[in-house]
Every structure is written in structure tokens, then in C-alpha cells.
Simulated scan of single mutants.
Amino acid sequence: MTRPGPKLVPLELTVVERAELERWVRRRKGAQDLAVRARVILACDAVADDGFPVSVTAVAEQAGVSVDTASKWRRRFLADRLAGLSDEPRPGRPRSVTDEQVADLIARTLESRPAGATHWSTRSMAAKTGLSQSTVSRVWRAFGLQPHRSETFKLSTDRSSPGKVHDVVGLYLDPPERALVLCVDEKSQIQALNRSQPVLPMMPGVPERVTHDYVRAGTTTLFAALDIASGRVIGSLHRRHRAVEFRKFLIKLDKQVPAHLDVHLICDNYATHKTEAIRRWLVAHPRFHLHFTPTGSSWLNLVERWFAELTSKRIRRGVHRSVQALEKDIRAWSSAWNEEPRPFVWTKTADEILDAVASYCRRINDSGH
């Protein structure tokens, strides 16, 4: 009895082809679709009991694919051998934007500005380059370009900046024994603001709304000392922020810190911290040691991070009809913080900070450093 159906052309795999197909099947991290195609071809190379090549139906059952799939890859292999098992280019519209156009777009974005504006938009750049707005947007996203954004920075011009960075960061990462490290600063000119009309409360689908204008009721100043170990804060409110008030705050710290501990204060370079009266007080209290951050480097003082928490969670959206009401809220928020204090953990070393600044200065052309 003769075999039904058309006679199949034998594959006749070479030793090299068989070894490569078996490697594709064993490869764990390879594409699984390529492994399936390899199994199909290996199954097609077998010979049935009647001496003819194994049928496509039997190959499909053995490889776990459809008959059409098995037939397709058998034909592709016969035509192009191993190269025929790779995916062909998918149909679709050919690429319309060249590499030169992309390079020109990036160069314009980085090196030029539009006439009459400070930065490019997708529309203005599309009009300038002749590309579509969506193409400009895709290229900017691919290369991480955001012309609409701008961030602020300030490099310290303090010649002793490296030494001060090492001094302050050293206190953060390796504080001295039998001593308390306190980050000290003033948050001055905190305004008691009362909205000109009542606040409209939040409702489902509608956020809280306040009037854009306000009535000023006065200002106050918060002196604060953040314990870097525990996160607790010692605060004092005054209507002014002169050396007189700073001296009163130092006296308060002297009373609240246990007498057997040295006190290391991290401060900025504000003039009230360096007056003759403050120097005399420090001489009379030798357990107090002042460590100054570099000029223009308030970010190095951890108490600024606590001030940011106070501002965002209590002051910015608060409504206060008087300075007394504002000070009451600040005291209440500080007391709640000290009930469950959370220290801010410093992680970067002084060398890492200075290396990052040096790297930035090398990247910009007109830093002057």
C-alpha cells in the first residue's frame, strides 16, 4: 500500500545544523519561539517506519504546534536552512525620520532657544524642524529631554567649603562620644495669613479651595535645634531674630541638654551667630562647639529638612487670624513630632559630595571653577 498525500522532501540535516538546532532547544535563556521551531525541524528530520519522512501531522503533534505552523517552518527551512527560522521583518510603513533629523533635533534642543521664548515647546520645535509634534515628543522622551523644566542650584563660593563639608558630614556619620549633635537654624518671617474668604472644604471630586488673596496678621520666628540621633526638636518662638534672641535660645539649650554632654551645634553663616555677645557666651560655656556650613549650602543642615515638614504639613495651608494662633499651631505640631520623632539619616560621605560637585563643574562650560 502506497503512502497517501504528497511526497515530502527530506530535510537531510548536516552535523552542524543538527548541533545548532539542539543547542537552541537546550538554551534556557533563549527565545522560546526559536526553540519550538528547532523542535519542529528536528522532528521533521526523523524517518517513519515505512521509510518515508515523518508526516507534518505527526511532527505537529510531537512539537505541540498546529499543522500549519509545522508546515510553515519546514518550508522556510528547506528554502533558507537555519536563516529561515528567524523572524522576517514585520510589515508596516517604513521609517520616515532619519538619524540625521534626530541628531539635528537634539542639537537644536540643547544648543539653541526659540525667538521670543526661553525654551522650546513641542509645537515650536516641530515648526522649526518640519517634524510632527508627536515625533518631537517621542524623541525628547527617548533621550530624557525636558525643555519645559528648570531646577535651581547654587555652588558655594566659600574657599573653606571642602573643610566645612568634611567637618559637618563627619558629625553626621561619626558623631563624637558623650556629646549631642544639634542642627540649629531660624525659620524667620513666618507669616500668619488669614484668607479673605472662608475655605471651601473638600468634597468628592472637588479639592479644598481657598482664595488666592489673604490678609497678613504679623510674623514670628522659630528657632529650632534638631537632635540628629533621636530626631527630637527643641524649639523657641520669638518675634525677632537678632543675636539677643539667638543667645536666649542657646541658654534654653544649655538648660535642656544634660550637663555631662558636650554640645556640637551645626549652624549657617548668619551674622547673629557670630556677634561678639555670642562669642563671649560660648567662651563662658566651653561645652558648646559651633560648626558652620559653607555659605550658600543650607541643604547641608538637616534642620532645614524638618522645617520643610513643618511648612508642608502645618503652615502652607494653614489659616491664622493672629500671630498667637500661628505660634499655638507651631507648638502643637512640634509637640506631636516629639512624641514620635523620626531622625533624618545622612548617607553620603563628604568625598562623595565634593566629587559630585566637581563632576558637575566639569560638565558645564561657564562654571568658572
Rank of each mutant, 00 (worst) to 15 (best):
L261W: 13
D351P: 01
H264V: 07
L261T: 06
R321A: 08
T347E: 15
T347S: 11
L261F: 12
S334K: 12
V303A: 01
Y270S: 04
T347L: 11
Y270V: 06
R247V: 09
L310W: 11
A308N: 11
V263M: 10
E304H: 10
I330A: 04
P294M: 02
R342K: 14
W299E: 08
I251F: 10
K348T: 12
T311H: 13
C267G: 00
I330Q: 07
R247K: 15
C267H: 13
V345I: 14
L250S: 01
V303F: 08
R279M: 08
A277Q: 11
H291F: 06
L300S: 04
S334D: 08
I315S: 03
C267N: 06
D268K: 05
I315E: 03
D262P: 00
E309G: 08
W281F: 11
L253N: 03
E276I: 11
L253G: 00
P341K: 13
A308P: 11
W333T: 12
K313A: 07
N269Y: 07
W306Y: 13
A308W: 09
L290G: 01
T311F: 08
L302F: 10
Q324A: 12
L326C: 06
R331I: 08
T293P: 00
H264N: 06
A350E: 01
K248W: 12
R287Y: 02
A332R: 15
S335K: 15
T349P: 00
F344A: 04
A284E: 14
A277R: 13
D351N: 12
